[in-house]
């Protein structure tokens, strides 16, 4: 008896930079960037929420633009640069946004938090002093079912002030 094996599509060779470090791996062509980060690269900080682009829990930065990693293929990041929540803290401590989220109690269950942090960093990296309206608009693609958003917005305002 021989086992019948249905040939699947070939894996894709990817060379990429993740949180400043070079990575090289093979990825199934249909695998999302979210699953690629979690299951192949081993970075599980990026969370799965809705898996259809509504909740923003899986937000990462791709060549400096925030994206929902569930709606990107791992194969698409060849030659590109990805930043995840794991890249925010340094040897010197937490990123000011992470510290402000703790101090303002801007999280409860925490599933949405990595996405909010990466999205908020994407804002403050380009606009250091956004007003409240701008913060709320920018974070409209991130859903939180616990906090009611006010604490999150205050934390981003606090980090913005501390980074000034």
């Amino acid at each position: 008896m021989t086992t019948q094996i249905t040939p699947g599509p070939s894996r894709v060779h990817v060379r990429t930079t993740i949180n400043g470090q070079a990575h090289e791996f093979l990825v199934p062509p249909y695998m999302s960037l979210l699953d690629t980060l979690r299951e192949i690269v081993g970075l599980t900080g990026t969370k799965e929420g809705c898996l259809d682009g509504n909740c923003g829990a899986c937000t990462v930065s791709l060549d400096g633009r925030i994206v929902d990693s569930c709606l990107v293929l791992g194969a698409e990041i060849n030659g590109k640069s990805v930043e995840t929540v794991e890249g925010m803290a340094t040897a010197n401590g937490l990123h000011p946004l992470q510290q402000a989220f703790l101090e303002e109690a801007a999280l409860q269950c925490g599933i949405c938090t990595p996405g909010f942090l990466v999205a908020a960093k994407g804002l403050l990296d380009n606009e250091p002093a956004p007003d409240e309206h701008r913060i709320r608009h920018w974070l409209a693609g991130n859903l939180c079912r616990c906090t009611g958003y006010d604490k999150i917005v205050r934390a981003v305002q606090k980090a913005s002030a501390e980074m000034a």
């Binding site: 682009g53 923003g56 937000t59 791709l62 633009r65 925030i66 994206v67 929902d68 709606l71 990107v72 999205a119 994407g122 920018w138 409209a140 693609g141 991130n142």
Partner: peptide, 9 residues
């Protein structure tokens, strides 16, 4: 269309 993440793509 969408939020900032969606508009990136």
């Amino acid at each position: 269309i969408g939020g900032i993440q969606i508009q990136s793509r």
